[in-house]
């Protein structure tokens, strides 16, 4: 290894960027933004952090271009996994349909008059599917990912 080959990047600068991005992520998390905005910004920030670590801590940006190509090319396959799994998750939704769908205009049959008519139909299920967590988590907030 020639000395010229490993000029040190500004590690403290990278550390600061990672720290700021982490704080921004936690901040976005607590801001209660619309779900799509929150998910998109969190994913972008996480990928930016991962890229910073790979490029500077792992020296990918400072190595020969060939190494970066060797490293990045297999990651295309993880895109294939996503494409392969998307039909399963998107078109199967919801996997267990509720016993009776309640349309928005309809009165709820046999429901309490004070009940929320706008509640998600999945909540009316008497027996929750096995995927429900043991904690009394509010399923109304736990919308789809």
């Amino acid at each position: 290894m020639e000395a010229a080959e490993h000029k040190e990047p500004n590690y403290w600068g990278v550390f600061g960027a990672l720290l700021i991005l982490t704080l921004a992520e936690v901040g976005v998390f607590y801001m209660h933004l619309p779900r799509l905005v929150m998910v998109l910004s969190l994913v972008i920030m996480a990928l930016a952090k991962a890229g910073l670590v790979a490029a500077y801590f792992m020296h990918l940006a400072l190595e020969k271009r060939t190494l970066a190509l060797i490293v990045i090319s297999p990651l295309v396959l993880s895109g294939v996994i996503i494409i392969g799994l998307t039909p399963d998750s998107v078109f199967n939704y919801p996997r267990q349909p509720p016993e009776k769908w309640v349309l928005p205009g309809e009165e709820e049959p046999k429901g309490e008059p004070g009940g929320e008519p706008s509640a998600a139909p999945a909540q009316e299920q008497p027996a929750p599917p096995p995927a429900q967590p043991p904690q009394p988590a509010a399923p109304a907030d736990g919308g789809p990912a």
Partner: peptide, 20 residues
């Protein structure tokens, strides 16, 4: 991670992770 995403997206009753 992809399996996690697939399981979670096809499950309407998935809890908010931070509630647990």
């Amino acid at each position: 991670l992809c399996a996690y995403a697939a399981v979670r997206m096809s499950n309407p009753l998935w809890p908010v992770p931070s509630s647990i």
